[in-house]
Simulated scan of single mutants.
Amino acid sequence: MAKDKKTFQDRLAEEIDEAITNGSDEDVRKEADEAGEDIAAFGDRMRAWLETAKDEVAEMAMKEAKAAAEKDRATREQNVVSMPQRRPGSRPDSFMPDTVAARHGKKLSERDRKGIEKDLEDLFDDDAWPDKKGEDE
């Protein structure tokens, strides 16, 4: 086991910490009174110091947060890939889609009517269908 070599200041600090930690409130007050210390004034000074410390910590945290946000803003644009905007081709203002589904059920165009009539003619045209082989009519 290695010898613990503490300096005089380290041993003194430990003794003071131990005396304060293990001492009762009455003993601490008695010692402060004997030394001529005003405990109430000391408490007020400590509370004021803690308030300023809290304010300083909050201010430092706000500065760090602002710096982080600024850094994020500066690097964000480099990380984003812009997508080209798709624009419709040169469509006239009166453009009407060709299919009923695209028009959401609006009235049929003349082109639609002609297409439906052609489909019906082909459907009922017996010559358009291949001959049935091996089946009786």
Results as ranks from 00 to 15, higher is better:
residue 1 M to G: 14
residue 2 A to L: 04
residue 2 A to R: 04
residue 7 T to E: 11
residue 9 Q to C: 02
residue 12 L to E: 04
residue 13 A to Y: 00
residue 13 A to I: 04
residue 13 A to K: 02
residue 14 E to W: 03
residue 15 E to L: 08
residue 16 I to K: 02
residue 17 D to I: 03
residue 18 E to R: 12
residue 18 E to I: 06
residue 19 A to L: 07
residue 19 A to V: 10
residue 20 I to M: 02
residue 21 T to D: 08
residue 21 T to K: 14
residue 22 N to H: 05
residue 22 N to F: 09
residue 23 G to Y: 00
residue 23 G to V: 04
residue 23 G to L: 01
residue 26 E to N: 09
residue 26 E to G: 07
residue 26 E to C: 00
residue 28 V to K: 11
residue 28 V to F: 04
residue 31 E to W: 09
residue 32 A to G: 03
residue 32 A to C: 03
residue 34 E to I: 12
residue 34 E to A: 08
residue 35 A to Q: 08
residue 37 E to P: 01
residue 39 I to H: 01
residue 41 A to R: 12
residue 41 A to F: 07
residue 43 G to T: 09
residue 43 G to P: 03
residue 43 G to V: 10
residue 44 D to W: 06
residue 45 R to E: 13
residue 45 R to W: 10
residue 46 M to R: 08
residue 48 A to F: 13
residue 51 E to A: 07
residue 54 K to Q: 05
residue 54 K to H: 10
residue 55 D to V: 06
residue 60 M to T: 09
residue 62 M to S: 15
residue 62 M to I: 14
residue 62 M to F: 12
residue 63 K to H: 14
residue 64 E to C: 02
residue 64 E to A: 10
residue 65 A to H: 10
residue 65 A to K: 13
residue 65 A to Y: 11
residue 65 A to R: 13
residue 66 K to C: 09
residue 66 K to T: 10
residue 66 K to Y: 13
residue 66 K to S: 12
residue 66 K to H: 10
residue 67 A to K: 04
residue 68 A to W: 14
residue 68 A to T: 03
residue 69 A to P: 00
residue 72 D to V: 03
residue 74 A to G: 06
residue 76 R to C: 03
residue 78 Q to M: 06
residue 78 Q to W: 07
residue 82 S to G: 13
residue 83 M to R: 11
residue 85 Q to W: 14
residue 85 Q to P: 14
residue 87 R to I: 15
residue 89 G to P: 05
residue 90 S to D: 04
residue 92 P to L: 05
residue 93 D to W: 01
residue 94 S to C: 11
residue 95 F to V: 01
residue 96 M to C: 07
residue 98 D to C: 02
residue 99 T to L: 05
residue 99 T to N: 05
residue 99 T to C: 03
residue 99 T to P: 02
residue 100 V to G: 04
residue 101 A to Y: 05
residue 101 A to L: 00
residue 105 G to I: 00
residue 106 K to W: 03
residue 106 K to D: 09
residue 107 K to D: 02
residue 108 L to N: 10
residue 109 S to D: 01
residue 110 E to G: 07
residue 110 E to D: 15
residue 111 R to C: 04
residue 111 R to K: 07
residue 112 D to H: 07
residue 113 R to L: 08
residue 113 R to P: 06
residue 114 K to G: 02
residue 114 K to P: 07
residue 116 I to F: 05
residue 118 K to H: 15
residue 119 D to W: 08
residue 120 L to R: 08
residue 121 E to P: 02
residue 121 E to M: 14
residue 122 D to R: 08
residue 122 D to M: 11
residue 122 D to Y: 01
residue 123 L to A: 08
residue 123 L to Q: 13
residue 124 F to L: 07
residue 124 F to C: 05
residue 128 A to K: 13
residue 130 P to E: 03
residue 130 P to S: 05
residue 131 D to N: 13
residue 131 D to I: 13
residue 133 K to V: 15
residue 135 E to V: 15
residue 136 D to W: 15
residue 137 E to D: 15
